[in-house]
């Protein structure tokens, strides 16, 4: 069972009281606010493609495939996306242990387990119109397109626009405005 430590962020007094009463009254000790790191990252993966354009030839299939390379940190969170649509296509989640099927994905999340081989992985993906996303520290600097970082318990991202353009992807200025940093 997840043990979120008790800090509730600042909010109106009544909401705080309501939460306090709720917490005290619940034997299971379920915390009201359990927006987790990977919950918000999964939502980001669902949301980000709305602001990105792929080259036409990359979106010919009937599905929008989100691949996870390496040890999946999302658990069952990403599976909640299956059945929803991105860019008018049905979302398919694929877990990859190798780069063989990477070309079939529109979005590839590279897990922290691949950190050591990052250069080689990015090298292989260089020619493909795949949106690369990861939370590995230094991912954007190394050539990944979107690097997810936690800054004081809030999700932020670094966009490597230069790399995205090189691989045929266009990140809208709307999204770039929200980026904490842009590598151009």
């Amino acid at each position: 069972m997840s043990h979120a430590r008790g800090h509730i962020c600042s909010c109106s007094f009544w909401l705080k009281l309501a939460l306090l009463l709720f917490v005290l009254g619940h034997p299971g000790g379920v915390r009201a606010q359990t927006v987790t790191e990977y919950g918000v990252k999964a939502a980001f993966l669902y949301n980000a493609p709305k602001f990105i354009d792929w080259p036409a030839e990359a979106l010919t299939s009937a599905s929008f495939t989100i691949g996870v390379l390496g040890d999946d940190p999302f658990g069952t969170l990403l599976d909640q996306l299956a059945g929803r649509t991105i860019k008018g296509k049905k979302v398919v989640i694929r877990r990859l242990t190798s780069l063989e099927r990477a070309a079939e994905c529109q979005l590839l999340f590279i897990a922290a387990s691949e950190q050591r081989r990052l250069q080689t992985v990015l090298g292989r993906l260089r020619e493909l119109p795949v949106l690369t996303v990861s939370d590995i520290d230094g991912f954007a600097f190394a050539g990944g397109m979107l690097e997810l970082t936690m800054d004081r318990n809030r999700l932020t991202f670094i966009a490597n626009n230069r790399q995205a353009k090189r691989q045929g992807l266009k990140i809208s200025s709307q999204m770039l405005k929200l980026a904490r940093e842009i590598v151009e």
Binding site: T36, E37, N47, R154
Partner: peptide, 12 residues
Amino acid sequence: LDDLLSVPVSGA
């Protein structure tokens, strides 16, 4: 997207 970047996250 805006909200995702401002919602406070908990969890170890």
